[in-house]
Design a protein around this nucleic acid. Structure first.
Lengths: 164, 164
DNA sequence: CAGGGCAATGTTATACTGTTGCAACACGAC
DNA sequence: GTCGTGTTGCAACAGTATAACATTGCCCTG
């Protein structure tokens, strides 16, 4: 099963999480990176939620599981996961979300629904090219690109058009 | 004089600030919005720095001028300035910068130099189109778009190639 | 000009997000 | 074993942003 299921459409979520975890394990193994219990648990929690989670949300969830973690624990796990492309940080939300294309080293584009708060990641060749072109026209060398589009997903547009 | 001078190139900075202020006054007058002393001073400080400033940087500057302001004062001024398109918030830096195309209501693209920390705003029709296309292909309706490209400006690329 | 209404600001406290620095522990290499 | 390195625990703190309510100032109207 692919990871391309839209978060705001029904999909087999358990399988979706399981796939992400398997992928992560495989990636880490290939790189000799240690997917320790905390790191794995953080990644699971992020995938299970399927919406962006703040670091302190994660902290609270871990606490509820009896793991009395402090902020650095979570931030370190998130750093690790980001470095290996397993999660993304959404700057405009101060929150983190599982990466659905962890193997590719693309710049993601995030569609952030203000209705249901779901986030859909996609990687658009056209957008990447346009940004690269605009940058190089200024003589600028990009290193890291943030593209976040807040708005309304199809589902929430409908609901707004048809109020209860 | 236009606002298109590149921040990392020498330009007549006093004039640049003066122009931005004049523009702001004119915009506010046209909309019956009150560019009060605090709001104007915050806008001036942002333009004078010509680099992104954090809210607490502004707070410190105001304090140094004898204006004993609290955070909400600055944030409220920034909210006002953002609403009228006079400043932008750079999400990836938690900082604010003067808008160089305040009259137009388009989505800006920010080139953020990690060397000199200057930010250059531009508005690329091509990027906007590409993002609109990618969004609508998903049935998504954009409301607010954040595009921030961190990297190296031409000047800093040179300096890096030729270390002191 | 008194008083009412509204926008802007002042003030205090607090919530939320992220980092530093150091100690303790785990695990593989030698 | 023990040494080195990477990971986690822990305490304190730094930085960013907002809530809630009081106060001020200004315009408008009667």
């Amino acid at each position: 099963m692919s990871h391309d299921a839209l978060p705001y459409r029904p999909h087999n979520h358990d399988a979706c999480v399981r796939d992400a975890l398997a992928e992560a394990r495989s990636i880490c193994q290939a790189r000799n990176a240690r997917l320790t219990p905390i790191r794995q648990r953080v990644l699971e929690l992020i995938w299970e939620s399927h919406k962006p989670l703040g670091a302190y949300d994660l902290l609270a969830m871990l606490a509820q599981e009896g793991h009395n973690a402090a902020p650095p624990t979570v931030y370190r796990a998130l750093d690790f996961l980001q470095q290996h492309g397993l999660v993304h940080r959404i700057a405009s939300l101060n929150a983190f979300i599982g990466c659905s294309h962890a193997r590719e080293h693309h710049t993601g584009l995030f569609l952030i629904c203000r209705g249901c708060r779901n986030v859909h990641e996609l990687s658009s060749e056209g957008v990447s090219r346009a940004i690269a072109a605009a940058s190089s026209a200024e003589g600028f060398t990009p290193v890291e690109t943030t593209i976040e589009v807040a708005g309304l997903c199809p589902r929430c547009q409908q609901q707004q058009a048809t109020p209860a």
